[in-house]
Design a binder for these strands. Structure first.
Lengths: 148, 148
DNA sequence: CTTCATGCAAAGTATTTGCAGCGTC
DNA sequence: GACGCTGCAAATACTTTGCATGAAG
């Protein structure tokens, strides 16, 4: 699968959704566009603000419901970097498991990929705890280059 | 420093607090006792319930304020395992940095110590992101032995 | 014209704050 | 008796829900 222009990518997603019986509404397509165009995870408040800029101004309930919808389909995932609110991140088809680093000064959140054996670590944890380990969360905190 | 009976340990903590000007109240000593006697991180609601069992039934504001108090002193730390509420964990004097595993069925939270080089990992992240990495959060999810 | 999606207002959950009174030292 | 601590009620922040209306297919 080759890379596509964002607009083509959005169209592809919308087509798939429509084919599965979902309606394509202004909120839905704008929100998906927003996610695809964003390299960072977004909060509900940020989404609301961004959509307002685009003259959409949906109700917050609708945004939360849309997030639930995309979550259930696995199109986005929920992440939590201890800010007291959740962030949501688009999952490209072959999304690689990755982590985030949060600037404790300005709050910016960036994605990072790590190259260490997380499988092995999970296996260790499973052995130690007796749990069947299904997932994990690993987030870093620090001060970004700009804030230093 | 040798191990002490919980009650002796509590007394020691209370003495230090008193010496620094804090008052020793029923809530304060019970809460500290609760933390010292618990091997797992607690939520505000759990604390409230436990104290009620001990016929204390404090107001939730007081519990939250007491948690803030202990947090500022570094006697407890805040942890977040994506439950929508915070957990608080007692920090023994030479507390070792560790992690948690949460059962996605019954919600039980256990502590685990990992033996892998987290310093090294943080350094890698710092290099990759350009951030000055100050801390990280690593939590595991799975199904506990009882729930399987 | 049938569902799915939306707006609105109200409720829910976790936590915080202002303030007057009480308890510890 | 001074000052820290407490209860209470109200406020805040984020998210969820019920219900009637609206729009996509």
């Amino acid at each position: 699968m080759t890379d596509k222009k964002p607009s083509a990518k959005i169209q592809e997603v919308l087509d798939t959704l429509r084919a599965s019986g979902a309606r394509i509404t202004a909120l839905r397509s704008s929100l998906i566009g927003l996610f695809i165009g964003s390299s960072r995870p977004l909060t509900a408040a940020e989404i609301l603000a961004e959509l307002k800029k685009k003259k959409l101004a949906p109700n917050k309930s609708s945004v939360y419901r849309e997030l639930d919808f995309l979550l259930e389909l696995g199109r986005i995932i929920e992440i939590d970097v201890l800010e007291g609110m959740k962030r949501y991140e688009w999952q490209p088809e072959h999304a690689q498991h990755h982590h985030h680093i949060v600037c404790t000064q300005c709050g910016v959140v960036e994605c990072i990929e790590l190259c260490f054996n997380e499988e092995e670590l999970s296996a260790k944890v499973a052995k130690k705890s007796g749990f069947a380990v299904t997932s994990h969360v690993l987030e870093f905190f620090g001060v970004c280059a700009d804030c230093r």
